[in-house]
Amino acid sequence: MVAENIDDVVDGLAEIVREAVRTGDRIGYFAALYRQVTVEVRKTIHEDLFDDGPRMDRFDTHFGNRYFEAYDAWRRDRSGPRCWRETFGLLDDADTVIVQHLLLGVNAHINLDLAVAAARTGPGADIHGLRRDFLLINDILARVVLAVQDSVDALSPLLSLLDKVGGRTDEQILDFSIRQSREEAWYNAVLLAGQSEREREATLERLDIRAAVLARLIARPTGIVRPALELIRRTESGDVPTVITHLDRAMERSST
């Protein structure tokens, strides 16, 4: 699928979520999170809170198409960027817990795709004009992540074990990862925006390899995190359609 605007991105993600609910496919976990973020970005555009709403529509469309391209490549012949292959390759792994699936999607989409989308939206020196709107999305993400984290807590009652073994609260797990990754993505976006085509190819190769390594660390952590994740897995919901639906309605519940 190819999106022409942010409405198409929302519709495309909604279709992936619906199909995932129907088939019990864990690909719907991250798609549900991503759909809600995109809906909130669209709302912010309509409320004229960005410096340049039409530019942010283009930005979000580029960003969404990166995900759709990876999704289509995986569905077609298990191809696509390394980091997305690592992410999609774990969809059938029942040992991977809900929060890991979310973090795997966040890792691939932000540590690789976000910089590409930003550089395409603001090539050359134009990238610097995108900075304020880019940062504003952090506030949008924080709202959505808080709501989704509440859903994950309800579905995965022992997730708080990661407080003790990971050194941060369960509410911070997703938010921390996203904010840290977005800062690095901005640096890489500025880099890509000023590079030649050959230089961009080398940078994208480096970013993809790094994100793929991070995906393996998320999927198979070492040390005391591993037994904690095993306990989490045993107690969290294994009903994939129900989990997707619960995640996809997180923002609705938070506004009531």
Rank of each mutant, 00 (worst) to 15 (best):
M1Q: 14
V2A: 12
A3V: 05
E4I: 08
I6E: 00
D7F: 06
V9S: 08
V10K: 00
D11K: 14
L13S: 12
I16M: 10
I16V: 13
E19A: 13
A20R: 09
A20P: 11
V21C: 06
T23R: 15
T23K: 15
G28M: 11
G28R: 04
G28W: 08
Y29V: 10
F30Y: 15
L33S: 09
R35L: 10
Q36N: 09
V37N: 02
T38I: 06
V39R: 10
R42T: 07
H46K: 06
D48E: 06
F50R: 04
R55N: 04
R58F: 01
D60R: 11
H62V: 06
Y67A: 11
F68S: 03
D72K: 09
D72R: 14
W74E: 04
E86P: 06
T87K: 04
F88R: 05
D92H: 05
A94C: 04
T96S: 00
I98A: 05
I98E: 07
H101V: 11
L104Q: 15
V106Y: 05
I110E: 14
N111W: 05
D113N: 14
A115R: 04
A115W: 01
R120I: 06
G122H: 04
A125I: 10
A125G: 10
D126A: 15
H128D: 09
H128E: 10
L130A: 10
F134H: 12
F134V: 05
L135T: 08
N138R: 14
I140N: 05
L141M: 13
A147P: 02
Q149H: 10
Q149K: 12
S151R: 10
S151P: 03
S151V: 00
D153S: 13
S156L: 08
P157Q: 13
S160W: 12
S160D: 11
K164N: 12
T169C: 01
Q172K: 14
I173H: 10
I173N: 09
L174R: 01
R179D: 13
E183N: 12
E183D: 13
E183V: 13
Y187A: 13
L191P: 01
L191W: 00
L192C: 09
E197S: 11
R200I: 06
R200C: 06
R200N: 04
R200W: 03
R200Y: 06
E201P: 01
E201V: 08
E205D: 07
L207H: 12
I209V: 15
A211S: 04
A215M: 07
A215Q: 07
R216Y: 07
L217M: 09
R220Y: 09
G223L: 10
A228S: 08
L229D: 00
T235G: 05
G238M: 07
G238K: 02
P241Q: 03
P241G: 01
P241Y: 03
H246M: 04
L247G: 02
D248V: 00
R249V: 06
A250L: 07
M251T: 08
S254H: 05
T256Q: 13
